[in-house]
Nucleic acid binder design. Structure first.
Lengths: 96, 96
DNA sequence: ACACCGATATCGAATTTTGATATTATGGTA
DNA sequence: TACCATAATATCAAAATTCGATATCGGTGT
């Protein structure tokens, strides 16, 4: 499980709760100690859409045009898989 | 928390249980789904020694000369810090 | 129409990882 | 002793990834 997968996992986690945008995710990740640059975030979201984990549409929010991403069925599956890996990681590093 | 920090954390985790070597850690990480090349592993161990998280010595095992790494007091502290971060990660992604 | 603002997109530079290859010491053989 | 095979460690150029400054794009107010 590489770094980029963790970023995807976080993204899916938030997308599961509700629609997300690029700036929202950057702030959210920042709050959890992940300083992600736009040059990583936007291509990441795009890649996730290509992979079918998210689907996007344009929308106007706060008088700004933003791209809204929503999680797909495939994305939810990937999220569950990712959670299993994190659970394993916890068992491994934090004990049973 | 970047990828390299996760690798360090895993390494400290194993070093806490007992002395480790480069090849041992590569195999161990492989078993947990992290495919690390020697070009990452050895410089990582060296960096960790420079940072004072591990200390090393040469030893002969199975008729081969290996570098043995042991965790230091500073390494144990770093391990605890890392575990806290993983625990946060789990709470965040897996729920309370 | 125009300027400003903020979200998204882009891309060359900087950083990190890879993986093939080199180095090194050991044990065995002659 | 000299030489070879083996395996662990070390190295480094190439590939992959991330950064971050800059560009683009559309909405809003004047």
């Amino acid at each position: 499980m590489k770094y980029r997968e963790f970023l995807m996992l976080h993204t899916l986690h938030h997308a599961e709760k509700g629609p997300i945008t690029g700036t929202f995710m950057m702030k959210e990740l920042r709050n959890h100690g992940y300083k992600i640059s736009p040059g990583t975030m936007y291509p990441l979201l795009h890649e996730m859409e290509i992979k079918g984990l998210l689907k996007s549409r344009w929308e106007v929010r706060n008088k700004k045009r933003v791209r809204i991403y929503e999680i797909t069925k495939k994305g939810k599956k990937a999220l569950e898989e990712g959670r299993k890996k994190v659970a394993e990681l916890c068992r491994e590093l934090l004990g049973e």
